[in-house]
Simulated assay, not measured.
Amino acid sequence: MNMPAFPDSAHPISWPEGKQAAASFTFDVDAESCTIAHDPQCTRRMSLMTHQSYGPKVAVPRLLQILDRQDIRATFFVPGFTAESYPDTVRRIVDGGHEVAHHGYLHEPMQGIDAATEARYLDRGLEALAKAAGVEPVGYRAPWWELNWHSAALLADRGFLYDSSLLDGDAPYRFSVAPGDSRDLVEIPVDWALDDWEQYAFYPGVTGSGVIESPVKVLELWTLEAEAHHAAGSCFVLTNHPFISGRPSKAVALERLMERVRFMDGMWVTTLEQIAEHTRSSVTEIHSHARIEVPSFPDTGAVFTPAAVREGVSRLAQR
């Protein structure tokens, strides 16, 4: 079937020779951390804790087998607390040839926190990943995809290459970390339609509506998304949580999706690190993001600072 092409005209990108689009399978290994951050009293709920520990104990080994069978290298975003609690799981991910990236320390709520507090979260997560498996991550995904305006500069200070938390594109791009700052990061955008949380996540008193979708329906949804990204020459980024999509029938559907995606003609299936390296090397446009200030709503209205694009230098041009 020939799909109509709807490219992301705001973020033009060319892929490596012989490739027309990119795809990455990513996993947020939250384990117990996301429920504890939601409510520390959750630790008193034995059944809930086992629901979350299923991820590193059962699902990650299963997913690693699937990825090996499909010859796919994936990106695993690991909170520092998960790395401290399950260091053997993190080492298995690394030994499997996959990327391990940063996902906070305890999957902390990010909305409205100050820069100093966020810096402590980042540094504690970095220390945990280094101790567990000698990992020095180049990628970051904010818990709940909630990046703050000061986050990018904190990441640049620590040598990160890319972020994958924003939702304003279908293709990777470079963006300035702050007004007046010459540094930039690569952004690899995400999409709630490509997150298993919205399809499957449910636990009484914690999350979800109680409607757990059929993997058949989810496979159809994600296949259509992958086909559209392939036709558009953009970047398909799927976000899965092992304690959700590592369950048996969901894992079967996920492997079927992987097989479909990797056999799409010219689809580059790789880690976010590799996609970010290519973007930094080949893209020269550096974007800023529109900002809105509301000093005293509604009396004074709002002030809109539009997004902008400036020309930078690619790594290829620097060589």
Rank of each mutant, 00 (worst) to 15 (best):
A178V: 03
P179W: 02
P179Q: 05
P179C: 03
G180M: 09
G180L: 08
G180K: 07
D181G: 07
D181Y: 05
D181F: 03
S182C: 05
R183E: 02
R183K: 13
L185K: 01
L185Y: 00
L185C: 04
L185D: 07
V186F: 02
V186C: 03
V186D: 02
V186I: 09
E187L: 09
I188N: 03
I188H: 01
I188G: 06
V190A: 13
V190K: 01
D191Q: 10
W192G: 15
A193L: 13
A193V: 08
L194K: 03
L194P: 00
D195N: 11
D195H: 01
D196H: 02
D196W: 04
D196E: 10
D196S: 09
W197H: 09
E198H: 06
Q199T: 05
Q199W: 13
Y200L: 13
Y200Q: 03
Y200S: 07
A201T: 00
Y203W: 15
P204G: 11
P204H: 10
G205M: 12
V206C: 04
T207D: 11
T207A: 14
T207Q: 13
G208I: 09
S209P: 00
G210L: 07
G210V: 08
G210P: 00
G210F: 05
G210S: 08
G210H: 03
V211I: 14
V211Y: 14
V211F: 14
V211G: 01
V211N: 14
I212Q: 14
I212C: 11
E213V: 00
E213M: 10
E213A: 15
E213T: 02
S214T: 13
S214E: 12
P215V: 01
V216E: 15
V216T: 14
V216Y: 08
V216K: 13
K217G: 00
V218Y: 02
L219N: 02
L219G: 04
L219V: 03
E220M: 09
E220L: 11
E220K: 15
E220F: 08
E220N: 14
L221Y: 06
W222A: 07
W222I: 07
T223I: 08
T223D: 12
L224G: 08
L224D: 14
L224P: 00
L224S: 12
E225R: 12
A226F: 05
A226I: 08
A226G: 12
E227R: 14
E227I: 00
E227D: 15
E227Y: 05
A228K: 11
A228Y: 02
A228F: 01
A228R: 15
H229K: 07
H230N: 12
H230Y: 11
H230R: 12
A231P: 04
A231C: 06
A232V: 04
A232C: 10
G233E: 12
G233Y: 09
S234P: 02
S234F: 00
C235H: 08
C235A: 13
F236A: 03
F236M: 05
F236S: 03
T239G: 10
T239L: 15
T239P: 01
T239C: 15
